[in-house]
Each structure stands twice: as structure tokens, then as C-alpha cells.
Amino acid sequence: MSSGAISGPARAGGGRDIPAPAARWRDYLGENGVQKWVFYIPVVFFLLFFAAPMALTVVWSVFERTQFWMEPGFTLFAYDNFFSSARAENYLFSMLHGAASVVIAFAIGFPIAVFIRRRVTRVAQHRVILLFILPFMISELVRVFAMRPVLGRHGIVNSLLMELGVISEPITVILYSPLGVIIGDVMSFLPFMIFAGFLALEAVQNYIFEVCDDLGTGRVRLFTHIILPLAAPGIFAGSVFIFVNSLGVALVPTLLGGPGAVNAGLIANQAIVALDFPLAMAISTIMIVTLVALLYIGHRLFDLTKVLEPIS
């Protein structure tokens, strides 16, 4: 029966009588069949894998802690635990780290994006952008771990600087330190700034730059009056990516931060390791609230709905 159904459509053109199973098979695929429901797949996906886990995270954060799991109930004990311990302070500190990483990634990454848009031939631009995707093909664990022999006391950076006579003592503040975490975050997430910045600039027509030549805008004002405002939504999107990752990816402080280094992700991890699930959920809830607040501010500043709209 099923073979008839599959070959049915092929026969349909010339065949004088179409087999009934084939017709029914096509009904299932038709506008009133699968096609009608296929549009709901993203909605189901969103509810199942995005909305539901977030809602559960919030709900579980107020559950009662048991020895190995938790039970339904309502208590703000986890939040109290969070805000009355060093965790709140660590969380703020981790936000500060995140902000520093964003600023440094902007300072390094956005000029790269501008350079690729303005100075690389149009046909080569996407290939150059592709180069910055390559590091993502390597496991993040390996990538972050590889920073150790670079930044360490006897690492490449220190050996090179000592060899050149720039320093006489190895710099130790760049590994197993807060600075090490920031360096790791920037190195790991810099491509996000380059991608987002480039995509925003790609939408800017070349004519715009020529008009600036015609009007005599000059380099500095071209950057502040034209490039920066036009790329602002992209820069914000890239910044959110980097901020959220440096807040949440526990790997970086674990490998590069040394003793006592934490970020929000690591605090949550530690809570899970200690089998304090409500606490882990409370931390996650606070992260969600932070992100939503950030997006709200961004939306008020740049109207993020415009990010996806073609310019002009």
C-alpha cells in the first residue's frame, strides 16, 4: 500500500485512474493537511524549548529545597540566600566584568567590522567574516584552555616581552585573575561584535559614504555622525551577546580566573553541585530578569524592531 502511495504522484499525470491511497496521501500533505499545521511548528518549538523552561525556572526558584531535589511550595528562601550571601556581590562583580568585556570587545571588534566593510573588496567581505567563525569550530573548552600557555607566567606573552626586554619580571596579573577572565571573555566572544557590527554596516549603502565625501564630513565625524548611529542597533545586539555570555559561561572563570573567581553561571553551577536546585533556579531567574531589563533599555534606545528592517 505504501509503495503505491509513493509512486502515485508520478503516475498521476498520465494515469487514467489515480489510485485512491495516493489521493488520500496527497490530502494529508495538502493545504488542509500537513501544510496547515506546519506553520505552527515554530510556535510549538518556542513553547516547548523556550517559554516552558523559562517559566519552570521561575516556578522552581520558589520551591522548597529537599535533600536531593525539591518539592512544590512557595518560599523566597533561595532569593534571601542569594541576596544575603556573597553571591549577590559576586553577581554584581560578574556584571562589571561583563561590561568591561563588552567595552574592550567594542574597542577591538568594531574597528575590525568597519575595516572589513570599508576597506575589503565587496566580494571578499563575507570570506573575511567567515575567518572569524573558524574559532567556533574548536571546542570552547579547548579554546579557553589554550589561553593558559599563552597568558601564563612562562607563557608566550611573558616570554616574548621578556625576550624583547620590555619587562624583566613576568606579568602575573593576566592569568588566574579578574583580568584573565576579561581577556578570556573578549577572546572568546569578540567575533559576535565583529559579526553584528559588520551586518549593521553592510546594510549601509556605499552612496552614503560618497555623500559624506561630497559634503566634506571628514573621518572623525563620519564615524560619530554616520557610522556609529547607523551601526548602533548592531553594536547593541553584539554587546548583549557578549555580556550575557560573560555572565553565564562558567568555563572562563573556572579555567582562567584562579581561586575565588566567579561569574553568574559559575554561581549557579556551584548551587547545582551542592544540590541546591531552588538557589540555582533563583540565580537563573535573576539572570533572565537582568537580560530582559537590558533588552528593554536597548529597545527604548534603538528601537530593536528596526534592527531587522531594511534601511531606507
Partner: peptide, 20 residues
């Protein structure tokens, strides 16, 4: 001389207004 130092001004084909 660069465009802004010439007594000329250009009107382009399209999409040349500052969108912001």
C-alpha cells in the same frame, strides 16, 4: 582635489539619504 573641495555636488541614483 577631493569632492568637498570642488565647486560640485552630486545627486546619487538611490538610497543616498542618511536613513537615521
Amino acid at each position: 582635489l577631493p569632492p568637498d573641495r570642488r565647486p560640485t555636488s552630486m545627486v546619487f541614483q538611490n538610497y543616498a539619504l542618511f536613513p537615521h
